[in-house]
Computed example of a mutant assay.
Amino acid sequence: DPGGEQSLGGAFDPASFGCGDSPLCASLLRLVRQGVLVVLAAGNEGSGDIVVDGFSSTRSFDLSIGDPANLEEAIAVGSVHPTLPHRYGTSYFSSRGPTADGRLKPDVVGPGERILSCRSSSDPNRSAERDRGKGVDELYIALSGTSMAAPHISGLLAAFLSVRSEFIGYPDRVKQILLDHCTDLKRDRYHQGAGLPNLSKMLLET
């Protein structure tokens, strides 16, 4: 993508594998079974252009969750506005459920619109010294996508596990705690999942 970030995922191919059963999903499931908590971007296929009678128009798409976000045991994260999620709801680009076999996805949503982060570089000579004196625009970039939202949820879960370390190695229990302590944005469940996670509630009620 434009920012140089690479996400591991793609379209679901029902002719080759069951929904959530692709080789990538199977590999991630093995990790989950070993006690690893897996957080995934839901995908950015929630909106796109279609051509009808020679005219192009933008449409929203349900059933747009891809692999590996289809994996039941993983936490698939959709995108919302970073400061006004109740007003704007799910981002137009955020992939929506249900999965191809009718399951609820995404699981939760996180801030994913114009998220400011470090600009990646392919310059092999880049260093802190060479970056000194560069402008903000050369060092940081604002991007949108569910790949921006997923790290917010990963960070929230890392913070939770740093306090509630007895849940480390029990990803199914952690996922359920996450889903049980979300703020409902009053949007369709196939758009927002359980809603926006609330770390304070997770800590206070466990």
Rank of each mutant, 00 (worst) to 15 (best):
G48T: 06
D49P: 03
I50L: 07
V51G: 04
V52E: 12
V52Q: 07
F55Q: 14
S56K: 11
R59W: 09
D62E: 11
L63C: 09
L63Q: 06
S64Q: 09
S64F: 08
I65Y: 01
D67N: 14
D67E: 15
D67S: 11
P68E: 13
A69G: 03
N70V: 01
I75T: 07
I75G: 00
I75L: 00
V77S: 00
V77D: 01
G78N: 01
S79A: 15
S79K: 05
H81N: 15
P82V: 13
T83W: 15
T83L: 15
L84E: 15
G89V: 08
G89Y: 00
T90C: 12
S91C: 05
S91W: 02
Y92Q: 12
S95R: 04
S95H: 10
R96V: 04
G97H: 01
P98Y: 04
P98R: 08
A100Q: 12
A100E: 06
A100P: 10
A100W: 15
D101L: 09
D101R: 06
G102Y: 01
L104Y: 03
G110W: 05
P111D: 12
E113V: 13
L116D: 02
L116N: 05
C118F: 12
R119N: 02
R119G: 03
R119F: 04
R119H: 03
S121N: 02
S122L: 10
D123R: 05
D123Q: 03
P124C: 09
R126Y: 05
A128S: 06
E129L: 13
R130W: 06
R130S: 14
D131Q: 13
G133T: 01
G135Q: 07
E138F: 09
L139V: 00
L139G: 00
I141R: 15
S144F: 08
S144I: 06
G145I: 11
